[in-house]
Design a protein around this nucleic acid. Structure first.
Length: 299
DNA sequence: AATTTATTCAACCGCTGAAAT
DNA sequence: AATTTCAGCGGTTGAATAAAT
């Protein structure tokens, strides 16, 4: 069944001429990551000798570059990225690796696949099919927008709730203050619970739990440790990349992540907003960004 | 509910050019 | 200078999954 191009026919995971082929197991990923940790990227043909992996250099390099590299950006291609792909493809044609250089965290393979599935067919297919695709995308987009509105409404409600509480607290404090300073009658300093007072109150988001259960608060003062994601479960079972994201890096991603968050709003509402596990933490950033936008006008 | 069709994407291949021997 | 090795590129395949019938 799996005759990859030319050459001898070998099944998935079958050892052919000493080399294993097909999908990678979590153990193989672990070995490869360990190899890179110890020896760095490159010298791929030494992997088998030094790590015990029964994969050839080519396969190892590909696995690392397209899947295990910690700086990979996961999640769907954003509209912004899509426009870059289109623009650069018009300019350079199928020079995928060149295009990929303009999209940090995206691989040439990913861009190639994306372009082929989204644009190559569209160019060929009859108008009716294009319409169908358009309608389907539109439908999905509308649904996603609705979900987003619901989320925002919930967040606004939470904010209002916090405001009310703060008002109560302030008035209680004022009462207390007034009682304590009964004899100082001209106490102008004790402000009433004016808007300007609670407007500066920025409610802290509850810590978000990532796919791994790792707490990722993504508060402005979140430590680097809080922003680390260690191991993920994916649909094929395992995604072991160790992605360490510093606070400035996370901030840099925030913009993109916001797009991802909006674009990938997930129908199941599974808490990851439809992004891949690797982006789960980053998406928390997006959520934070959304929330921040709600608060900003009051600041 | 079952079947068919379409889509996605990880992993393969052959080829090429650069670097090492 | 010739040969071998290695890394990287673009094209292709097919298993898994989603959507349509």
């Amino acid at each position: 069944m799996s005759s990859w191009g030319g050459g001898h026919v070998a099944g998935w995971g079958v050892v052919e001429e000493g080399w294993r082929k097909g999908p990678w197991t979590s153990e193989e990923d672990r070995l490869l990551m360990e190899y890179v940790r110890l020896h760095g990227e490159g010298r791929w043909n030494s992997v088998a000798r030094l790590s015990g992996l029964k994969r050839n250099g080519k396969s190892c390099r590909l696995r690392w570059v397209n899947y295990l590299r910690p700086d990979l950006k996961r999640g769907q291609i954003t509209p912004h990225e899509e426009s870059i792909i289109l623009e650069l493809h018009a300019k350079w044609g199928n020079r995928w690796s060149t295009i990929a250089r303009s999209l940090p965290g995206r691989t040439d393979n990913e861009i190639k696949n994306y372009w082929r599935t989204h644009f190559k067919k569209k160019a060929k297919s009859p108008a009716s099919n294009v319409e169908k695709t358009k309608n389907r995308l539109l439908k999905r987009q509308q649904f996603q927008q609705q979900r987003q509105m619901e989320m925002m409404q919930q967040q606004q409600q939470l904010f209002r709730f916090n405001q009310l509480h703060m008002k109560k607290i302030i008035s209680l404090l004022e009462d207390d203050n007034n009682n304590n300073n009964m004899d100082s009658s001209n106490s102008n300093s004790s402000s009433s619970s004016s808007d300007s007072n609670y407007a500066v109150y920025v409610p802290q988001m509850a810590p978000q739990t990532t796919a791994t259960g790792t707490t990722s608060a993504y508060a402005p003062n979140a430590t680097e440790e809080q922003l680390q994601v260690h191991h993920y479960q994916t649909n094929n079972g395992y995604w072991p990349a160790v992605h360490q994201m510093t606070v400035p890096e996370a901030a840099m991603y925030e913009d993109n992540a916001l797009w991802d968050g909006l674009w990938n709003f997930d129908a199941e509402g599974n808490g990851n907003f439809g992004v891949s596990p690797a982006m789960a933490t980053v998406t928390c950033g997006a959520r934070k960004a959304c929330f921040h936008n709600l608060v900003t006008p009051f600041c």
